[in-house]
């Protein structure tokens, strides 16, 4: 959200309009609030978590929610709220970093293809088309098997999958920008292509990119949870919401809250991100609005 604020101070009317539109969309504001709250909690987790991450109480075992343990405890007597908070750190981190990987690859790829055009563009977009046809879910499973379950690889693998749509969006945006007068003016001033891409093209594609980024984060988080659920993603002692749901399923007959609480947290987060994304789309990118 820093971007929005900075742009606003520069007096760019597009961003002010967008902010006004967004602030009238209560669902999107609710989403924004939830995300900001989650980020703050995740950052502060080591200091505000009610119990230690590894703190067990084997005598206690699994207990239902109570005053001491707001969301109950798991079979090792570990506090569920604490575990969800630490798991959220990993889930959010995967969401943000993998999305950042996708963002960088997609924006550069799309900007270069759209800007250079011609045969380069044809080849680059053909590659994107081919990759669209590939069964990625299967490839990620394969990658995790071949190279071991390593969190860094998880970021790269998910990011490498999610950049395709971003590249397409940026390319079409750049194609239309390329022919505009201020770009021609920059050329006639003798600026290099790279400078023009960096200074003029990329800032002008920010709107759709921000929208699509917001919508990529939930799908990345879902992918991570999916892999962790299958046991192919995050590995213990690290934890994530997908992994917590996986454990919850094993004991759901006796202790349903071990499934319900991480599940609700994940769903609520995905909800919030999707609402925020839809709201941003209506505010920033009227052409592709929902209906």
């Amino acid at each position: 959200m820093d971007d929005l604020q900075v742009m606003e101070e520069q007096g760019s009317s597009l961003w002010r309009d967008a902010w006004i539109k967004l602030s009238k969309n209560y669902l999107a504001l609710f989403g924004l609030g939830v995300i900001v709250l989650l980020c703050i909690v995740s950052l502060l987790t080591p200091w505000i978590a009610p119990y230690g991450y590894e703190e067990q109480d084997l005598m206690l075992g699994a207990t239902a929610p109570s005053l001491q343990h707001w969301l109950g405890t798991d079979i090792f007597g570990r506090d569920m709220l604490t575990r969800i908070m630490y798991g959220g750190r990993v889930s959010l981190m995967v969401g943000f970093i993998a999305t950042a990987v996708a963002l960088v690859i997609g924006v550069l790829w799309g900007a270069i293809a759209g800007f250079v055009g011609g045969r380069v563009d044809a080849v680059m977009m053909r590659i994107v088309d081919i990759m669209y046809a590939l069964p990625f879910m299967i490839f990620i499973v394969l990658l995790m098997v071949v190279f071991g379950r390593n969190i860094l690889l998880l970021f790269l693998a998910i990011g490498a999958v999610e950049w395709l749509t971003m590249a397409r969006i940026v390319r079409s945006q750049v194609m239309s920008l390329r022919k505009q007068e201020f770009v021609e003016a920059a050329y006639s001033l003798g600026l290099s292509q790279w400078t023009i891409i960096r200074r003029h093209i990329i800032p002008n594609t920010l709107g759709p990119v921000i929208v699509y980024t917001t919508l990529t984060i939930p799908s990345v988080m879902l992918l991570e949870a999916f892999l962790s659920f299958l046991g192919l993603g995050i590995q213990p002692p690290e934890s994530s919401w997908g992994l917590l749901i996986n454990y919850g399923v094993e004991t759901m007959e006796e202790y349903p809250w071990l499934l319900i609480f991480p599940g609700v947290t994940l769903s609520l987060t995905l909800f919030a991100l999707n609402f925020l994304g839809d709201g941003l789309r209506d505010a920033l990118d009227p052409r592709t609005s929902k209906d």
Partner: peptide, 22 residues
Amino acid sequence: AMLGICMPSFLLGPILVLVFGI
């Protein structure tokens, strides 16, 4: 529909089992 999108199958499945099965 939004609920359906934000409720992944690995969560929906166990919840359905819990409610309708168990």
